[in-house]
């Protein structure tokens, strides 16, 4: 019996069999490789956070090592809201449970950058509507606290829009909450050789020791400017030919804008930390002296009774 290979029945059966076989094969491969791929993504994030801290011992950490030593360095994982208030805190004793959004590690800033862009276009930044919209879309800001040799470092994580696709970055601050100690930038699909250079050391090293506040401890965004110009202390060198990725278009795009809109939130948290630590001491003295006064009054009262 010969089969008519040009007939409709044969064609249809061939197509169905092919789709089932190929579909099954791909589904099998994808699901069996998934754990490995997810581990890669998780370890890479840990690696980025560790590298951003800017410590010598974490700068060269490989992806596989990162997973092992992450908890030795990162002691707290904090989720912040737009006002810089703490929503939730996890310590290195808590294990990372996937999809637990109260864990800063699971806050995937790249997932909601589209929402962020939309909200930004619609409402004025910082207005009540703006804040309400952020809340509605559950946009939060992850922060990682690293403690090493008695010193604290804060690692921020945020994303924005590059020329072609999303870009994101980790910036580590020193204990004072305003001086940058290290940065790691990355991108999804910026032009190779141009915008993709935001990952290189040439770009990143210029951020170290830049300060995000002015003399009055008010927020002052870091500016990225064209290479070759003289730079102020809060200005970093851009990449030649990568105007949009690094410097931006003056609206939503670019590393500069991404940092500006995210660091304003973190700065609120940092300044609240600083004001707490400064105010704490006088407060303590006040309560103490009141107590002593009270005690004195009490003693006099007791004596008087006697």
């Amino acid at each position: 019996m010969s089969i008519n290979k040009e007939g409709n029945v044969y064609t249809l059966i061939f197509a169905i069999v092919m789709v089932v076989v190929v579909g099954g094969l791909l589904a099998f491969i994808a699901s069996s490789l998934k754990p490995l791929q997810e581990a890669n993504v998780k370890n890479e994030k840990m690696q980025n956070i560790l590298q951003a801290i800017g410590l010598e011992e974490t700068a060269e950490v490989t992806r596989d090592e990162a997973g092992a030593i992450f908890n030795d360095y990162i002691t707290e994982r904090i989720v912040l809201d737009y006002e810089g208030n703490v929503i939730s805190t996890k310590t290195n004793q808590d294990s990372i449970v996937p999809k637990d959004m109260t864990d800063a590690f699971n806050v995937e800033v790249r997932k909601y950058y589209n929402n962020l862009m939309r909200i930004e276009k619609k409402y004025e930044e910082g207005s009540e509507e703006f804040k309400a919209a952020l809340k509605e879309k559950e946009i939060t800001y992850p922060l990682f606290v690293c403690e090493k040799d008695g010193k604290k470092y804060f690692v921020t994580y945020f994303s924005g829009k590059g020329l072609w696709d999303d870009i994101w970055g980790y910036i580590a601050f020193k204990e004072d909450g305003k001086t940058i100690n290290g940065t790691v930038f990355d991108h999804k699909g910026e032009t190779p050789g141009l915008g993709s250079k935001i990952t290189t050391e040439i770009f990143n090293r210029d951020f170290v020791n830049k300060v995000i506040t002015n003399e009055n401890n008010e927020y002052r965004p870091i500016r990225v400017i064209k290479p070759g110009k003289d730079r102020e202390e809060y200005e970093v060198r851009g990449i030649s030919g990568a105007t949009f990725t690094a410097i931006g278009d003056g609206a939503n795009m670019g590393v500069e804008r991404m940092m500006e809109r995210s660091l304003v939130v973190y700065q609120k948290y940092f300044s609240s930390l600083n004001s707490n630590s400064i105010n704490k001491v006088p407060e303590l003295i006040d309560t103490l002296s009141i107590d002593t006064m009270q005690m004195q009054i009490d003693t006099t009262a007791v004596l008087a009774i006697k």
Binding site: K5, E6, Y10, F14, A15, L25, I29, L33, N40
Partner: peptide, 28 residues
């Protein structure tokens, strides 16, 4: 085996499947 009516589609499916496999293996 490939029916000539749909040979381009069949080739496309084969290539697409291979590319996805390459992509997945590279990622892992």
């Amino acid at each position: 085996l490939i029916p000539s009516k749909i040979k381009i589609i069949v080739q496309l499916v084969i290539v697409a499947a291979l590319v996805i496999i390459v992509d997945q293996v590279l990622k892992a």
